[in-house]
Amino acid sequence: MSTRVIAAPRRTNPNSSPSRPVFGGVAGSDPAVVQAIGNTPLLGLSRFAERIGLPPSIELWLKAEWANPGGSVKDRPALAIVRQGLASGQLGNGRTLLDATSGNTGIAYAMLGAAFGFPVELVIPESASSERKAMLTAYGATIVYSDPYEGSNGAILMARELAASKPNDYFYADQYSNKANPRAHYEATGPEVWEQTSGRITHFVAGLGTSGTLMGTGRFLREQKPRISLVAAQPAEAFHGIEGLKHMPTAIVPSIYDDRLPDIQIGVDTEDAYAFARELARVEGIFAGVSAGAALAAAVRMARECADRGEPAAIVFVAPDDGGKYLSTELWS
């Protein structure tokens, strides 16, 4: 069985303004890059499933979010947040979009800031990978470094202080609290996965960062299929290296996060996330990032449990980005 690819339906792109054709690009329409956000492929990992000994009744599917133009799933919530800011007048008129980010959301904001023409300022821990810093600079964003020893909580607290100090200068996007974040996934990621699996999905697995992917996609899928399993992957320990994910018991918990939505929480060791990312590269030729490795680790645990019980399953997990931004880390060494 070869690897299958199912393209998302093009007609239902909610990222496109309703007043013009999806394949726009005419004067006055959205920036070109916006039209490439969403509708990412769903990849069937039949080789990988076979390699780890899963029976054919267990399907593993990867939602390839690196296919977004900014290279990550974060293009979706960032666009929704920017649209809402522009519509409400909080953004525009020279105001600077400000947020704390571990990297990918910052890249998405920086890309959209360049395309729409608003300034972007990002607070990131100084320990963020050098590739991310370089990308932010390439898009013309301003970077403010927070103390690397304080992690992403330190970045959040610094962004809050900056926003409070100059409320008229900043649109504080606050991805951790902004309801446009899960809404982007409710309106697009969820319907895409539902249609791409023809409703056969039994498990949806996503890592928890802001939690927007799991909250929005999960709510949509549960409405379609109440018995679906929603699986949250998070770092097993407070001290971890799964960039972009949060260990919720010790984190500043995002206000968009509702811990009653996931049925299952799976703690993933950083070493396992690294190992699964490397395995994915070598078995399927899919070069995904470390948080994708963490989601795959959780998906495989679900797959094995289903196999042990003799239950068929169609397990979808989200690969938030590709491996390129981690080349300077030990992930691939």
Binding site: S127, S129, G244, L245, A251
Partner: peptide, 12 residues
């Protein structure tokens, strides 16, 4: 001497 995890979600 500093000990820093590869950038990741925060903890307090």
């Amino acid at each position: 001497v500093g000990i820093v995890p590869a950038m990741a979600g925060g903890a307090r």
